[in-house]
Computed example of a mutant assay.
Amino acid sequence: MDETGQASVEYVLLSLVFLIILGSVTIPMISKSIDSSMDVSDTSNVNSAVNSIANAVGVVYANGPGAKRTINVYFPVAGTLSWSNNAIGMPVTLTNGTAKNINAAVPFTVVFKPSGNVAQKTNYNATVEWAVGGASINVTLTPT
């Protein structure tokens, strides 16, 4: 009876050591893959929002001065929208601390109102308008 009890204890301890080793290897891998998938999701959603605004700017530009369009966009992370070099852009900070810039080309000068437009993590109504006699297309984000 003593030998059987000792074998059972050794089997339980061996199983415990195996589970500890398995857990110490798989948990960091799972954590890293979750972070990577969240980065892909956030980047994809920002890309969709920026491209939606750029498409609305293209439609307003095609319709000419006096045209206006309102769309709904979602930003999954906070960031600053900007226009430079004929492109609308917004940086997305990844979980490893690096930033990825999401850009979409536009055919005309774009001004975000209010200036220094910082998008928060929420839905927005983006009003894209080219005023008659205006030298730029104005984009105003209003939280919904």
Results as ranks from 00 to 15, higher is better:
residue 46 V to R: 04
residue 13 L to P: 06
residue 63 N to T: 07
residue 97 G to K: 00
residue 7 A to N: 05
residue 142 T to Y: 01
residue 121 K to R: 12
residue 71 I to T: 00
residue 129 E to I: 14
residue 100 K to R: 08
residue 132 V to E: 09
residue 5 G to E: 13
residue 59 V to S: 06
residue 58 G to A: 11
residue 122 T to M: 12
residue 132 V to Q: 08
residue 84 S to M: 04
residue 102 I to D: 07
residue 63 N to W: 00
residue 133 G to Y: 01
residue 124 Y to C: 04
residue 23 G to E: 01
residue 11 Y to E: 08
residue 75 F to G: 03
residue 128 V to L: 01
residue 70 T to G: 04
residue 81 L to N: 10
residue 69 R to G: 12
residue 41 S to H: 05
residue 75 F to R: 02
residue 3 E to K: 13
residue 98 T to Q: 02
residue 63 N to G: 08
residue 32 K to E: 09
residue 113 K to P: 12
residue 86 N to T: 10
residue 80 T to R: 11
residue 106 V to Y: 03
residue 136 S to N: 13
residue 144 T to P: 05
residue 97 G to L: 04
residue 49 A to I: 02
residue 80 T to N: 10
residue 91 P to Q: 06
residue 89 G to R: 04
residue 11 Y to I: 12
residue 37 S to E: 13
residue 74 Y to K: 11
residue 42 D to V: 02
residue 40 V to D: 01
residue 114 P to Q: 05
residue 76 P to C: 00
residue 113 K to L: 15
residue 104 A to N: 08
residue 54 A to T: 03
residue 95 T to E: 12
residue 136 S to K: 10
residue 6 Q to M: 15
residue 43 T to Y: 06
residue 98 T to K: 04
residue 93 T to G: 10
residue 2 D to Y: 06
residue 136 S to T: 13
residue 88 I to P: 09
residue 100 K to D: 03
residue 83 W to H: 07
residue 111 V to R: 10
residue 128 V to P: 08
residue 2 D to R: 12
residue 116 G to H: 03
residue 37 S to A: 14
residue 135 A to H: 01
residue 71 I to G: 00
residue 141 L to G: 10
residue 38 M to G: 13
residue 95 T to M: 14
residue 67 A to I: 03
residue 68 K to N: 14
residue 116 G to F: 04
residue 65 P to W: 03
residue 67 A to W: 01
residue 104 A to T: 09
residue 115 S to A: 13
residue 16 L to C: 06
residue 116 G to I: 05
residue 99 A to G: 13
residue 124 Y to R: 02
residue 139 V to A: 12
residue 108 F to Y: 08
residue 131 A to T: 00
residue 75 F to C: 05
residue 108 F to V: 13
residue 68 K to M: 13
residue 28 P to R: 04
residue 125 N to Q: 10
residue 22 L to Y: 01
residue 73 V to P: 06
residue 57 V to A: 11
residue 86 N to G: 15
residue 32 K to R: 11
residue 44 S to Y: 00
residue 5 G to T: 12
residue 26 T to F: 06
residue 70 T to S: 05
residue 120 Q to G: 15
residue 59 V to N: 12
residue 24 S to Q: 13
residue 105 A to Q: 14
residue 108 F to H: 04
residue 84 S to C: 03
residue 17 V to G: 12
residue 26 T to I: 12
residue 105 A to N: 14
residue 9 V to L: 14
residue 32 K to N: 09
residue 81 L to D: 11
residue 5 G to L: 15
residue 115 S to P: 03
residue 65 P to E: 11
residue 102 I to F: 06
residue 31 S to C: 05
residue 93 T to H: 01
residue 61 Y to K: 13
residue 89 G to Y: 04
